[in-house]
Nucleic acid binder design. Sequence first.
DNA 1: ATAGCTGCAAATGCTTTGCAAGGCC
DNA 2: GGCCTTGCAAAGCATTTGCAGCTAT
Lengths: 142, 142
Amino acid sequence: MTVDQKESGLKANLENKIRKADLRPTKQRIALAELLFADGNRHITAEILHGEALEAGVRISLATIYNNLHQFTAAGLLREVVVDSTKSYFDTNMDPHHHFFHEDKGMLEDIHSSKLEVSNLPDLPEGTNIASIDVIVRVTSN
Amino acid sequence: MTVDQKESGLKANLENKIRKADLRPTKQRIALAELLFADGNRHITAEILHGEALEAGVRISLATIYNNLHQFTAAGLLREVVVDSTKSYFDTNMDPHHHFFHEDKGMLEDIHSSKLEVSNLPDLPEGTNIASIDVIVRVTSN
DNA sequence: ATAGCTGCAAATGCTTTGCAAGGCC
DNA sequence: GGCCTTGCAAAGCATTTGCAGCTAT
């Protein structure tokens, strides 16, 4: 198999992913999907993703980045991680897991679920269900 | 002891708290301290606190609310809880503890530290220290 | 053809800042 | 008096929205 075939196989795969989410595989969406999903788990902000897209030679507006990040999130391809009150991070790892947050660098790092356990959870408030449990271990450089 | 004496005792206490933080006990600061610390643990946004101050008849600007929330936070009288990417919450409970976050209502509720245990924490990334561990149990009404 | 997407620019919402006037020590 | 605080209005920043034009099906 040539490199080109691998390349096109990957793209076809991403197109599929987009189609399954009931979204049209536009040039911009495919480019974003490549940046987000090709290299495994990523934690990214809209701004950064925009920069990467431009660098990769894909002309795309920030508004479209935001639209697509939210559409991907709604479709279950991404999740939003709330760690910083000034900007939003999106995570491509959909398995249950937690995070280190490097406060100095504004960087997220996965903690595999098996590596961290939350026990002794008290009774939930009357009439509520758990939507998710987020554990954020904030670290600073020493 | 009369009610008035209790009242003034409380205020004197709050003034002390403010002085210890190296801040001047201005009318606005005392009013905010009353709203924040008089009735035990609270979780509050700048907007809400502003509303409460106006309701209590204290003329204070939103900018001053923000200034003081940050000064109180820097002084260790408050902590900021990051749960919502659109606004900041401040918590008057400085003991180590975690939170339920009612996503429907945008409301925080304490989980006493003794009630929830985080175990099996993996090794920290090279050269880092823990700043804090935040557990947020997001719940929705059913 | 038509419903969905994109880009632009304007709008939004929360938060911060600059600066003149006022208040605490 | 001198420095800290306040309030106002303007600015800032990330994000969202309206809309005209383009694109996938």
